[in-house]
Design a protein around this nucleic acid. Structure first.
Length: 361
DNA sequence: TAAGCGTGGGC
DNA sequence: TGCCCAAGCTT
């Protein structure tokens, strides 16, 4: 049996079953999360928005402590808008994808300046806000405001790729999967869009997982093509094109000064670790060339940290040297530097890469 | 359009 | 250990 995504998708009874199964399952199995309004509670749009931004490409486990921290520091959006950008960046340190923090702060200001501190209840307007893209706008519409929206995150993509057996590779098949979300996520007079969206995300996170599919526990299995068809395996979908991760090399400089401590850098507003504090560093693609360039500063073969980014693998040598020697390397131009004392450096909010470096000092 | 952008955890 | 992965957005 082979069902193409073009056939028999007008089966309204099947779609109704899908919705019924998902929502009933959610009523019994919803995860309890700090930002989540449970049955009978009213959703807080600020909490929904903040959590959705933090959860972009980030695990629930990692987000929870940061969400709590932000809500304690800034219980409402107007407080966040009034905060210094540096304070927001510092509170975000360690969570990754730092442009999210900048956009979060910008977004809070727009919401306060242009919308009186209330998030607009229109998807078009939400999409214009910094850091809010198609997924997040739809999620806020559904979860915060209970309105129908085609919510499609990685979980929901995966569920529909398996449920409807969509061949082809991500991201090519995204438009097809998007069509399915619009088809299946029914009018809000029939099912609560908030429950439905969160149901699918919980099912994706706990049952229909990327590397494991607990199909016998899945409330959607009775309609799932790649489960029902003996020739298909749910785990094969969605297919993805694999990209290789290049290896890059760098040197990180511990610049000490007896009277003033360590040299740190406020990084540029764009690029890696945008706008965050860091230690002076330099990266290159070729290891031999880089070692040659810095042959003057006695790089030790066993003094390095490794760090895996989404798009490259970094081996970062760590070198101690004095101010004069550092100056002679010619890296000082365009670097926005500050001094911190030896005691303070461990208290500066740093991206995890630099925290690793500080630990081996 | 595709590349750039972090981090910690799971297997 | 090495690789994959998580509630994507921006340029």
């Amino acid at each position: 049996m082979k069902i193409s995504h073009a056939s028999s998708i007008d089966d309204s009874q099947e779609i109704l079953n899908f919705n019924n199964q998902a929502v009933s399952w959610y009523a019994q199995n919803a995860r309890s999360l700090p930002w989540r309004a449970m049955m009978g509670e009213t959703a807080n749009p600020y909490h929904v928005w903040l959590s959705e931004i933090m959860l972009q490409q980030t695990t629930v486990t990692a987000v929870i402590p940061y969400f709590e921290k932000f809500i304690n520091l800034w219980p409402r959006v107007d407080g966040l808008a009034a905060a210094d950008e540096a304070a927001v960046m510092d509170a975000w340190a360690g969570l990754g994808y730092y442009s999210r923090a900048r956009n979060l702060h910008k977004c809070a200001k727009v919401v306060c300046d242009e919308y009186g501190g209330e998030f607009p209840q229109e998807e078009k307007l939400l999409l214009k806000l910094p850091g809010i893209g198609p997924y997040t706008a739809a999620a806020i519409m559904a979860i915060a405001f209970g309105q129908r929206a085609a919510v499609m995150d990685g979980n929901i993509e995966r569920i529909f790729a398996r449920y409807r057996h969509v061949e082809g590779f991500l991201p090519d098949i995204k438009p097809i999967l998007k069509d399915y979300t619009q088809l299946y996520m029914l009018d809000d007079s029939v099912f609560d869009p908030s429950s439905l969206a969160q149901a699918l995300m919980d099912i994706g996170a706990t049952i229909c997982q990327p590397k494991r599919a607990r199909c016998t526990e899945c409330p959607l299995s009775q309609g799932c093509v790649s489960y029902l068809d003996a020739d298909l395996k749910p785990l094969d979908y969605p297919r993805k094109k694999v990209k290789e991760r290049p290896k890059r090399y760098g040197v990180c400089f511990i610049v000490e000064n007896d009277s003033q401590g360590y040299l740190i850098e406020r990084r540029p507003k764009k690029g890696l670790f945008a706008n965050m504090y860091g230690l002076p560093m330099h990266m290159e693609d070729d290891e031999a060339e880089m070692l040659k360039r810095f042959s003057g500063c006695e790089i030790k073969q066993n003094q390095f940290v490794e760090h895996i980014f989404t798009h490259f693998h970094l081996k970062l040598y760590v070198v101690k040297l004095g101010v004069g020697a550092f100056y002679d390397l010619g890296l000082f131009d365009n670097i926005n530097t500050e001094w911190v004392s030896c005691a303070e450096i461990r208290d500066v909010s740093l991206p995890s890469l630099f925290s690793k470096v500080v630990k081996i000092i």
